[in-house]
Design a protein around this nucleic acid. Sequence first.
DNA 1: ACCTATAATGAATCCAATT
DNA 2: GAATTGGATTCATTATAGG
Lengths: 369, 369
Amino acid sequence: MTTKTESRGATALPLNSILAGDSVAQMRKLPDACVDLVFADPPYNLQLRGDLHRPDNSRVDAVDDDWDSFESFRKYDQFTRAWLKQARRVLKPGGAIWVIGSYHNVYRLGAELQNQGFWILNDVVWRKSNPMPNFRGKRLTNAHETLIWASKSEGAKYTFNYEALKALNEGVQMRSDWVLPICTGHERLKDETGAKAHPTQKPESLLHRVLLGTTNPGDVVLDPFFGTGTTGAVAKAMGRDFIGIEREAAYRKAATARIAQVRPYDREALQVSTSKRAEPRVAFGVLVERGMLRPGEVLQSMNGRHRAKVRADGTLVATEIKGSIHQVGAQLEGAPSCNGWTYWHFRRDGVSLPIDMLRQQIRAEMAGD
Amino acid sequence: MTTKTESRGATALPLNSILAGDSVAQMRKLPDACVDLVFADPPYNLQLRGDLHRPDNSRVDAVDDDWDSFESFRKYDQFTRAWLKQARRVLKPGGAIWVIGSYHNVYRLGAELQNQGFWILNDVVWRKSNPMPNFRGKRLTNAHETLIWASKSEGAKYTFNYEALKALNEGVQMRSDWVLPICTGHERLKDETGAKAHPTQKPESLLHRVLLGTTNPGDVVLDPFFGTGTTGAVAKAMGRDFIGIEREAAYRKAATARIAQVRPYDREALQVSTSKRAEPRVAFGVLVERGMLRPGEVLQSMNGRHRAKVRADGTLVATEIKGSIHQVGAQLEGAPSCNGWTYWHFRRDGVSLPIDMLRQQIRAEMAGD
DNA sequence: ACCTATAATGAATCCAATT
DNA sequence: GAATTGGATTCATTATAGG
């Protein structure tokens, strides 16, 4: 793993490295507004009592590590307040945070996020396709965990690769519930004895979706509870820089070895579908200017119910109604708004096509310049 | 709708009626420990501060112009604290609460539940099969809402019809993610103008699952934010009693008319699958007393690896080990526990059968009495 | 090599009645 | 009330062993 540093004013960022020590103390050393995304998987504060056995009498390997144990909700809240405060400070104004938790801790996390001025954009449910059952039949199978995605403050900018997630979701808008398997098999890191290296390793698929949807290549991702480095591994593969913080030497060692083996994807593979909004604006009139549509040519509505004539200035006219492609479409449909680019169709060689095709043609030419 | 009242000490409960007024004020009039379940769908539009009341029931003044989110959260928390405190007071020690919310308010709700000593049993994700898309493509489709199920305190008893929910889920343990459509079509109440009568009417399927899983027929269900009465309608159909509280006269009117039309299910239809735990206990010694097994008879373990002899007092002996059918089985297997009823087998006519068959025979005789 | 049976395991706030 | 005892309870997936 090559440790890249980057100058930000007087301070160099420890990019693509794992800082040893306490999350709050290490974040304090980072400058203000230096990271694009925080991904945090803090201790869940499970409050387990006795042993639990499966019906076949085998014992469940519980998360009973010291780092997960807190005296009280009050102590847990203090801890949460402290690390979230630093996380917010190091976040760029247009940055965002993801936190993950279960019902044991996520309500504390969410409330404190809001208290500090973070603005929740979505909560996301990770629906586990293969959760551990409830062996005693006393409750529902705890089959999900919750992620909260929040911007730094209300109204702040944030990165959202809408089209990329839509493409990942087979062309349908990505929803707030994600079905993903838990981390098992080859992906699950083992220690020398063959036991799991970390009790709560997250699946890479989860981080892949988070980073694809809410960061861009070259962004800096901070994970203050790095563990065995799932965030770092996926960030490296996806051409993002990471900063990890981890207290336990054993986890740091496992993470370092793991990340060293990651081969970044090709740059080409990292090109994602970009939102139409980010693409250069094209005036309808340009289509007329360029001769793609003739003044006087008649367009048909998508549903075939309405017709309008193109005018030389790039407006449409339909009987009494005149205006932009959007205005005329909206008025004819009695709708508050209308996307004229997909609403209006023209004919070529007997085929009806949306005028958006002509816009795409212009954009392709622009990109070729 | 017939209003049934029930005496509890000096106070009669206003069963199957809708109390007009503020939730906190109306709950104050109810006695301690009088309801089995609270189902609460509190308002979460943080901007509608007109809905918010201080613990002393005074109205919170709206500050429309310079709306400060932090201040608003504080007021929402006060409101939450006040109604949850009353809800907890009126709950029986073995009762439970369900609250439902979205990311706007559910983190406040969950944290306050924990602060007041409620003990979260599960959180449940209502995964909407037909959510409203995110039209502007700026976030993920908000395709779920969250319910929290909590007992009155840590270690408290609670009702959970495990087998009934498992049956509802085609024989596999019910999970914490429930896929249900939103409330539309015939089920959606309309006002005189044809507009929806309530902005956030919940589907009856959701309440059906909640009441089936966590109440019994005859239980009292309190809904302090009754709205158009989904809780009451499903409670009536399912043979549960309800108490509704609602401030808005229009909602009360719609709910009253709706519930009047509900026909309760047959008593037979309300019988749900029960677990073995509910069946009467049978001592192993009874099998010996009744001559179903002879003292001195040898039993074999399920796996054929161990043998033990029945003694006249209903204990087993295997070489050095003596004790109950469970104790001897556990010791021989080196297991923390063992169900002797399914572990030990006896032979009749050359066939090996579990001794549990003899227990079932006795239970059948008991039922026949 | 390929198929089948058995074993292992995962962020878990996992019992209730009787003595 | 603490300690004891009866006895009820699991799903999806991967890894390993056996044939």
